[in-house]
Design a protein around this nucleic acid. Sequence first.
DNA 1: CTGAAAGCGCTTACAG
DNA 2: CTGAAAGCGCTTACAG
Lengths: 335, 335
Amino acid sequence: MKTNVTMKDIAEKLNVSSVTVSKALNDKDGVSDELKEKIKSLAEKMGYRYNTMAKSMKDGRSYNICVVIPERFTGMTQSFYLKVYQNITQILEERGYYGIIHILPNEDEDQLRLPRIYHERRVDGFIMLGQPSRAYSDLMQTIDMPLVFLDFYDENGDVDAVITDNFYGAYELTNYLIQQGHKDIAYVGNLFSTSSIQDRFLGYYKSLLEHKITLKDDYVIKDRDDRGTYVDMEFPKQMPTAFVCNCDQVAHLLMEKLQKSGFKVPEDCSVVGFDNDIYATLTSPNLTTVEVDIEEMAKNAVKFICEKMDDPNATFGRVAVKGKIIFRESVKNIK
Amino acid sequence: MKTNVTMKDIAEKLNVSSVTVSKALNDKDGVSDELKEKIKSLAEKMGYRYNTMAKSMKDGRSYNICVVIPERFTGMTQSFYLKVYQNITQILEERGYYGIIHILPNEDEDQLRLPRIYHERRVDGFIMLGQPSRAYSDLMQTIDMPLVFLDFYDENGDVDAVITDNFYGAYELTNYLIQQGHKDIAYVGNLFSTSSIQDRFLGYYKSLLEHKITLKDDYVIKDRDDRGTYVDMEFPKQMPTAFVCNCDQVAHLLMEKLQKSGFKVPEDCSVVGFDNDIYATLTSPNLTTVEVDIEEMAKNAVKFICEKMDDPNATFGRVAVKGKIIFRESVKNIK
DNA sequence: CTGAAAGCGCTTACAG
DNA sequence: CTGAAAGCGCTTACAG
């Protein structure tokens, strides 16, 4: 099998022009069905493989979309982001695009270095998956390419973003806890770390407000510093009966700490998480949590980026995709 | 900022030819230093970005290496493989290449469908990360492209492979258990699932042989079916004092089962794992395990694939990279 | 229905 | 030190 079969090779064998071969292989008009079949089967026989690079050169597109994930998220919720990426590539594939993952090293983020892939024109657009530093997010916005934020949004910028409906997710979860008789409910998360954590907090807070429950100062428990590194959590003096955690991993950490301190879940304290990721079923009892609709999020992100490639002025704003509560065993009815 | 600045644009502004611009930007001989500097700074000012595709077309290389990971591994040890991928891209980058991850869907694996990326000539070589089905691995070998297996090898084929030294890792770990006074040591893993699991078993077995300890039939405990799906593990009638698990995740599952059945680790049973991945520190007590030298493995895989691109006949055979035992709290000295 | 010509942005080999 | 010519493999727009 020759390594480099081109359209021209096929054309010569059949005594036609390479234009005709191109048309046939791309199922375009202007070739008789008979000839088309002949060309296709010969291409197959000769082991012809389409050269995307040539097409790319022609129309100035790489047909690649870069999915950028800050390095520090790969340790944290790697299973989640990898799944998101998987969904993205699948959907991109339907549109003839390819998804390329780029793990953004902490150093590059600090130094404000854009991915080499950008400087080399290997991609047509960026999906930023997971919130980078403010400066880096600003930098991304100076790029003359379609950009979509996924799973976070930027407070000031007007970048199109697809996010989980963090606010309502946490709101509904907290409502559920209150229905189960809980009144002393703490929130676990650093409010200044990411927009998701902040919005989940606000949903929790809205639920408290609606039920006329006062938010106590020490009922917001810090789980990490502003860069995202976990810190030891401090229990409030008066223990709550339930904890709303900003994510499943933190719920997992919290449950470990509770159990080490002699508290039983859910007998003494109920715990809920967010994400329904690997940590949700790694804890025992398994976590009641919010399942993020990954497929829907990926679909939206891909749709936005593709439409922006065709029309650079297209904007979509902030789209929140609804999640769904998964009921498990980490909550006790204390009525 | 114009979106599409080419070498020609730069050349025209400076009244030179694009050949000169090309030479200058690539730091080649044949341009005066003065002109070179002028060109470089103008390129910077005009926001010039190199068009890799054009170069690719010229010399028939995409400068992409595809890292293929079977889908079922992404759930299992995702953290590990993502780290490996990260290392690979970093090292590839030093050589001017880019690493593209491709998660191989189960369906494509069954249907023996090669990645689209291959048919579209978007890559110059493949690193297969994680063992696919036998048929798929055979299929990969029919491809006219450099191929390196990473973290597994094929029994029959003669594909170059970089693996952890599973055999000696498990051997040394088992020796350690025996030094701590253990004699009733079970192995946890399906011997027919992957070559790693098999080799780790053999290392364990060698240690038993050397210490004249008989291998009992029911001391090999099945953890998954042949496709890799976990099954409920069955304890042997007479409980061992120690378990050698084929990986940390399985050690984690085992410890959960032990603790549910009322056994304490390490008081009643010692447990060791392999990989030193996220699960090693997710268990309590933390696992004594073998840390895989990811960087060294990635380095080798990249070196092999690059040299094979330059010389398709280059072969390297099977290279086993030594790991290192990490001592934690899951083993008790029972002497 | 079929094909000759031109071009995408770069590089190589050669001439001056 | 500098550049004109040709070519990588395809597609588009046009002519027949």
